[in-house]
Design a protein around this nucleic acid. Sequence first.
DNA 1: ACAAATTTAGACACTCTTGTCTAAATCGTC
DNA 2: GACGATTTAGACAAGAGTGTCTAAATTTGT
Lengths: 229, 229
Amino acid sequence: MKLGVSPDIFPPRSHEAKRVSVVDAAASVFCRQGFAGANIDLIAAEAGVSRQTVYNHHRDKEKLFVAVVRDLTERCNAGIFATIATFPDQPGDIEADLIGFAVRMNRNCICNRDGRFLRKLIQAEGERYPELFAEWREQGPGRTWSALAARFARLAYAGHLSIDDPDVAARQFLALVNAELQITFMLGGVPTENEVLQSATNGVHTFLRAFSKRPSTASVKKQAALASA
Amino acid sequence: MKLGVSPDIFPPRSHEAKRVSVVDAAASVFCRQGFAGANIDLIAAEAGVSRQTVYNHHRDKEKLFVAVVRDLTERCNAGIFATIATFPDQPGDIEADLIGFAVRMNRNCICNRDGRFLRKLIQAEGERYPELFAEWREQGPGRTWSALAARFARLAYAGHLSIDDPDVAARQFLALVNAELQITFMLGGVPTENEVLQSATNGVHTFLRAFSKRPSTASVKKQAALASA
DNA sequence: ACAAATTTAGACACTCTTGTCTAAATCGTC
DNA sequence: GACGATTTAGACAAGAGTGTCTAAATTTGT
C-alpha cells in the first residue's frame, strides 16, 4: 500500500494532528480510568497511533497528563468567556434572558466534553497536582466569578436587579441554575437538554424572587448613597 | 487498663476492630490514589495489619472497595438523617435557625471524613460501579431531598415561608448554602469553619429573600415587569 | 525523486502489584 | 496452661505496565 489507498482506514494525518489525537484520547482514558489506571497502550490505540509516538510527543505519562489538563483548561476558559460575552446586559424579558444565558453556560461550558473531562480530572487528581490545579482555579473560576459579578453589578446599576454583593450573587446564580444537576454531575453523567432547561428555569425563578428590584430598606439606602455620591 | 501490657504500642485489637481498621485505611487510600492506584500493601500498613489479614477479611481488592463504599454510605446516611431531625420546625428566629441547620449539615455530613471520602469515591469511580452508586443515589440524595422537602413544606404550611414546590426549594436550599464551597469541595479540600458559616449565612439570606412570606407573588411579578420595562 | 524527519511494530528490561502459600508467632478462651 | 483460631512475615508465581531501543516503513519538504 503506497498511496492513500488505505481501504477503509482514515487518511494519514499530520504531525500536529497526531499530537491533538493523542491529547484527546489521553483525556478520555484518564477520565475513565484515572491517572494510575490509564494505560499508554490504550491511549495510543484510541488515538490511532503507535505507542512510541505517544512517547515522542510527550516524554512520559505525567507530562502527558499535564498537557491534557492545560489543554482542557484553556479550551474551557475560552468557552466560558465567550459565553459570558453573551450575558444579557440590556434584557428585554429578564427572566427569559437569564434562563437562556444559564442554558448556554451549561451546554457550552459545563456539560460538553471538555467541561465534563476537566471537572472529572480536577476531582480525581486535584490533590496530587496542587500547583497545576491552583493555576486552573485562578484562571477559571476566579476570573469567571469576577466577570459574571461585573455583569450582575451592571444589571443592578441599570436598575434591573437589587443586589448587595455582586460576587455572592454571581456564585449563587451559578449554584441555583445547577441545583438539580449536581447528582448527575457527581456521577459523571450528562443531563438531558430538558433537565438543563428545567434546572435553569427553576434556578432563575428563585434568583429573581430574591434579587428583583423591589422596595427594601437596603436598596433604598443604596440608592440614597448613590444619589448623594 | 487491665490487659494493656503492650509496652508503647497500641493494645492488641479484636477481630472486628481489625476489620474496621482495614476498611478505614482502605477508604483513605482509595480516596488518595483512586481504585487502580491503591496499593493493598499500603492499606495493610496504614491499618496496622499484615497484608494477609486484608485478604482474610475481604476476598480481593474489588470486594474491599465495595465494602468501603457500603460502609461510608451507611454512616453518611445515618448522619444526614440525624441532622435532618434537628431541622427547625418551630423557628424562633428563622434566619438564625436555618443558618444553624445548614452549618450542622455541612459540618456533620458533608465536610466530615466520611462525607468527603464518599463524595470523592462517587466522583472518581461512580461510572465503573453503576449498580453500587445507583443504590447510594436512591438511599442518599433521593431520601435526603424528600425528607428535607417535607420539612420545608411544613414550614410553609405553618406560615413561615412561601414555597411553590418544596422539592425544588429543598434542592435550592442545599445549593445556596454550599454555593461558596463548591471549588473547595471539587479539589477535595476542607473549608474552614468560617467559610462554612459565611456560605451558609449568605445562602440562607438569599433563600429567605426568595421564600419568606411576603405580600403576594403577584405583586412581585408586577414589580419585576415594571422594572424590566 | 531524494533526503530528512517522523512513525511504526516489536522486542526488551525493569518495576510494581495482586493474590496464594507456608510455617511460625500470637491471641482468645477455657 | 493448653487448645483452636487468627495473625504475621516472607517467599513466590503470574501478570501487567512503563519506558527504551532498533530497524524498517512511511511521510514531508524541496
